[in-house]
Simulated assay, not measured.
Amino acid sequence: MKAESRRRMRVCVAVTAALVVAIVLVIVILAFTVFKAKRPVTAVDSVSVRDMDMSLDIARLRVNLNVSLDVHISVTNPNKVGFRYSDSTALLNYRGQLIGEAPIPAGRISSGGTAAMNLTLTIMADRLLSTSQLFSDVTSGSLPLNTWIRISGRVSILGFIKVRVISTTSCDFSLSISNRTIEDKVCHYKTKL
């Protein structure tokens, strides 16, 4: 009887161990295939002029400028689980110099969902006016600008595997001074785990 009881105990332990190994293998396979972390995609849908006041002081070779841009972006989460991102910032640059920024508050995007965000970038006139090329750009009728957006966050797979993902978008465009429109917009998207 004792030998039979030991044998049953061994079989029970072996079956339990085999089940645990099988469950762990299924979880690992799912984590690296179906639930594999994918990068979110940030896209700049549109850039438009919200407000623009400009005057040219030819006697002093000076430009007085106040510009606000509306930037509409969307962030798409291609993952089978939610994506939680932290506070981020959208930057506005003129010839490599930071001239404006807008906060992007932290949030969460559900599985396969897309979050639309509307940002207002206001040019910091003091930074822009200190640039030596501004007068020639204004007289030519076009300001070359760039927006740069970086969103970083985490994707939680099966509740315990956390993968950090980052998505950046850079858009070059020209602000036409005469008709107050955005022209020649070209965007570059980059994502990484």
Rank of each mutant, 00 (worst) to 15 (best):
residue 1 M to C: 02
residue 1 M to N: 10
residue 2 K to H: 09
residue 2 K to L: 11
residue 2 K to R: 09
residue 3 A to T: 14
residue 6 R to I: 10
residue 10 R to G: 14
residue 11 V to K: 07
residue 11 V to M: 10
residue 12 C to H: 12
residue 13 V to G: 08
residue 13 V to H: 10
residue 13 V to C: 15
residue 14 A to F: 11
residue 14 A to N: 12
residue 15 V to E: 08
residue 21 V to S: 11
residue 22 A to H: 08
residue 24 V to W: 12
residue 29 I to M: 13
residue 29 I to V: 15
residue 30 L to P: 03
residue 31 A to R: 13
residue 31 A to E: 13
residue 31 A to Y: 00
residue 37 A to Q: 04
residue 37 A to D: 03
residue 37 A to S: 13
residue 38 K to L: 08
residue 41 V to Y: 01
residue 42 T to F: 01
residue 44 V to Y: 00
residue 45 D to R: 07
residue 47 V to M: 02
residue 49 V to Q: 09
residue 50 R to M: 09
residue 51 D to Y: 15
residue 53 D to Q: 14
residue 53 D to T: 13
residue 53 D to R: 13
residue 53 D to W: 09
residue 55 S to A: 15
residue 59 A to G: 04
residue 61 L to F: 04
residue 61 L to Y: 02
residue 61 L to A: 03
residue 63 V to S: 07
residue 67 V to S: 04
residue 67 V to C: 07
residue 68 S to T: 12
residue 71 V to Y: 03
residue 74 S to W: 06
residue 75 V to C: 07
residue 76 T to P: 04
residue 78 P to M: 02
residue 81 V to C: 06
residue 83 F to A: 01
residue 83 F to G: 03
residue 83 F to Y: 15
residue 83 F to T: 06
residue 84 R to L: 14
residue 85 Y to N: 00
residue 85 Y to P: 03
residue 89 T to I: 12
residue 90 A to S: 04
residue 90 A to P: 00
residue 91 L to P: 01
residue 94 Y to W: 07
residue 95 R to G: 03
residue 95 R to V: 02
residue 98 L to N: 06
residue 100 G to Y: 04
residue 100 G to P: 07
residue 101 E to M: 14
residue 104 I to G: 02
residue 106 A to F: 07
residue 106 A to R: 15
residue 107 G to V: 03
residue 107 G to T: 05
residue 108 R to S: 14
residue 114 T to D: 09
residue 115 A to D: 09
residue 115 A to G: 03
residue 116 A to P: 05
residue 117 M to W: 01
residue 117 M to L: 13
residue 120 T to G: 01
residue 122 T to F: 05
residue 125 A to Y: 07
residue 126 D to W: 10
residue 130 S to D: 14
residue 131 T to A: 02
residue 133 Q to G: 00
residue 133 Q to C: 00
residue 134 L to N: 00
residue 135 F to S: 04
residue 136 S to K: 03
residue 137 D to M: 03
residue 140 S to T: 12
residue 140 S to I: 02
residue 142 S to V: 14
residue 142 S to F: 05
residue 146 N to I: 09
residue 152 S to L: 03
residue 152 S to F: 13
residue 154 R to F: 11
residue 154 R to W: 02
residue 155 V to P: 04
residue 156 S to N: 12
residue 157 I to S: 05
residue 157 I to R: 08
residue 158 L to R: 01
residue 159 G to T: 09
residue 161 I to E: 05
residue 165 V to G: 00
residue 166 I to P: 04
residue 166 I to C: 06
residue 168 T to G: 01
residue 170 S to I: 06
residue 170 S to A: 14
residue 171 C to W: 07
residue 172 D to T: 11
residue 172 D to R: 04
residue 173 F to I: 03
residue 176 S to T: 11
residue 177 I to N: 04
residue 179 N to D: 15
residue 181 T to S: 11
residue 184 D to R: 11
residue 185 K to V: 10
residue 186 V to M: 08
residue 186 V to Y: 08
residue 188 H to A: 15
residue 190 K to I: 05
residue 191 T to D: 05
residue 191 T to K: 05
residue 192 K to F: 10
residue 193 L to S: 08
residue 193 L to D: 06
